[in-house]
Write a protein that binds this DNA or RNA. Structure first.
Lengths: 346, 346
DNA sequence: TGTTAGCACTCGTTTAATTTGAGTGCTAAT
DNA sequence: ATTAGCACTCAAATTAAACGAGTGCTAACA
């Protein structure tokens, strides 16, 4: 069977109507709602076809139809195609440049949640190519040396190293020089065992300190270490009856709090984005129901967007709501913040 | 009216029974539950008295009684008095020393939540007397200088300062010396405007850099800046019908996610603890219903405990559940972790 | 041949009526 | 002071009835 223009119009009307009301929509309602004049009976026939084709579902005999995941997918795809949409009018969504990155991200998450009335999350940006920029050892007191490591993107990692006996300034200076001359500008792959052994040899009796420093460097450069996820508006899900029953709400809230499951979502959407099979790609992905990489989101829709902060730092933000969410509004909100973030540290 | 022994026994039985079942308890049930032999009728008379005294409540005419906040308070106080309780048997609650403090705290929150089946939170430890230990300026690249500030308790604060023109190593060394000689060992109160002006004068043309550093120092020493709160098991509240309705659940979840409200709770319980009006004090506080400083917890009970990590670093952890929570178990769990944390960095 | 009016039928939702049972307060007897 | 007995209350569970939105099918129609 073919999805001709009339069927398309009807399907579209069903979905739009359902997005508004949240109730199954029947043939009589559609007859009034549609711009083309058709009797309920005719529409019923078409609906019957649409159901057979898998775009809509009848929750029980003798009730209206609701969109299936496939139906939502059709809607979202055609919506995405209409790129000549009006520009965003979310004038109140302005990110203020925050002192700390974490503050900024929290702000963004809250903005998203407050403006959309869905749940929102944002990941800290991940560094793509990790090169060591700078190492500094300092004496804090007689028993402790502080190692400060800066990697590309000005990510800073601190590590306190305890030493059995005080180290004099001269030795410290030498170690600093040793580390910086050998390691600066290198990526994780380039810091191999041979190089490490070489440095340790040169450090002589202080090789144990060097070992600790190298450990810290590995930590600093390994990306997943400092993946932070900020969430906001988890309680918004209670606004949608289809998600608000205890069983489902509990699952969603739990996923939001534990956060580690959300990691899958982030890596998947970042990967899909850079794949860019959708042409130029705005970096926006939509996961409907079971399409989502997270099991507990099977009754939700998840819309994700990537953002870029300065060079090589990509992060991801996401809106989570009921399947009947206002996809247009959500996409617009994400787009707005995406642009703001991109230019913030341009 | 006086709370004699028999009334006490009956009140205790009502509360224990309600803690177990969650249902209002009636006179017949009590008659069977009590060790002393009394007919339901007698018990009814006593119950009537207890209600008049405010210890119990009748949700509606012709239903059993449930404890009022005052009733819970009586129960908790008398329970706390029984200090000869058996030692904790939560053998599986073992904190593994985590590399990072944040990891450790997350672990503790999860342990608490998983073992009690209530919601749990823990705050990062707050430093009591904040003295500056050490400052280090380093050149990261031509446009940026990194300031590393270490305060008592080895809390580290980083700040990147951009400079219009490259600074040579010699100047940097001088500034480092200048800052450390004047500021090390001082607390926030001791770093006054006079001192700051003096340092700026000595820094000459680099006074702007000094200004940035001083800002960062203020940030580092101000305690509330780095108050982190880790939560776990928020979804546990769904296990208790009296909290699981959308309205209440949403409020609680929201408080848990926003976190800033939780700050009140933390400062209040830390203050109450150091007040120590309850004698030596185990650092455990119980807030029942409206006793809690947080409005949204009015239908919950909140049990808090302070912990000490090394010198001068006090933090707070807390369990949040229904009023009919198992106070004994909760207090035991908190006590166990308290001891473990206290000895961890002893 | 596609469209529509008509109609019997389905089935979740709503409303009202009824029953049940745990629990109470009061009184009178022990 | 304690208790047995009894009438009374009221939330919750159960049942029954009515409702109504919506369907599928058939036959008439343009």
């Amino acid at each position: 069977m073919e999805l001709n223009e009339r069927k398309t119009k009807i399907l579209d009307a069903i979905i739009r109507n359902y997005l508004e009301s949240g109730d199954p929509v029947g043939s009589r309602t559609l007859s009034k709602y549609l711009d083309i004049k058709l009797s309920p009976a005719t529409i019923r026939n078409e609906m019957s076809d649409l159901e057979e084709m898998g775009y809509i579902i009848q929750p029980h005999t003798s009730s209206g139809r609701i969109p299936s995941d496939k139906g939502y997918r059709f809607y979202v795809d055609s919506m995405m195609a209409d790129r000549e949409k009006e520009v965003s009018d979310m004038h109140d969504m302005v990110v203020e440049k925050a002192e700390e990155l974490s503050g900024l991200l929290k702000q963004v998450a809250k903005l998203l949640a407050d403006n959309t009335n869905y749940a929102a999350l944002i990941s800290s940006p991940q560094i793509h190519r990790n090169k060591l920029k700078f190492i500094q050892l300092s004496k804090v007191d007689d028993g402790n040396i502080l190692a400060v490591i800066v990697v590309e993107g000005n990510i800073i990692k601190n590590k306190m190293i305890s030493v059995s006996e005080p180290m004099d300034d001269d030795t410290l200076l030498k170690l600093n020089l040793l580390l910086n001359t050998h390691l600066n500008g290198l990526s994780l792959e380039e810091i191999n065992l041979g190089l490490i052994t070489l440095i340790k040899e040169r450090a002589g009796i202080h090789s144990d300190v060097i070992a600790s420093v190298i450990d810290a460097v590995a930590d600093a450069v390994r990306a997943d270490e400092d993946l932070e996820i900020y969430t906001s508006g988890a309680n918004n899900i209670f606004k949608y009856p289809e998600l608000a029953d205890n069983q489902k709400a509990s699952e969603i809230i739990s996923t939001f709090e534990e956060k580690n499951e959300l990691g899958h979502l982030i890596s998947e959407s970042l990967a899909k984005d850079s794949e860019g099979r959708d042409g130029p790609g705005t970096g926006i992905q939509v996961y409907i129901g079971r399409e989502s990489p997270i099991e507990s989101m099977k009754d939700c829709s998840v819309v994700t967007a990537t953002y870029e902060l300065g060079d090589n730092m990509k992060g991801m933000m996401s809106i989570i709501g009921p399947k009947r969410m206002d996809y247009e509004k959500v996409a617009r909100a994400l787009k707005t913040l995406q642009e703001q973030l991109d230019t913030l540290y341009k």
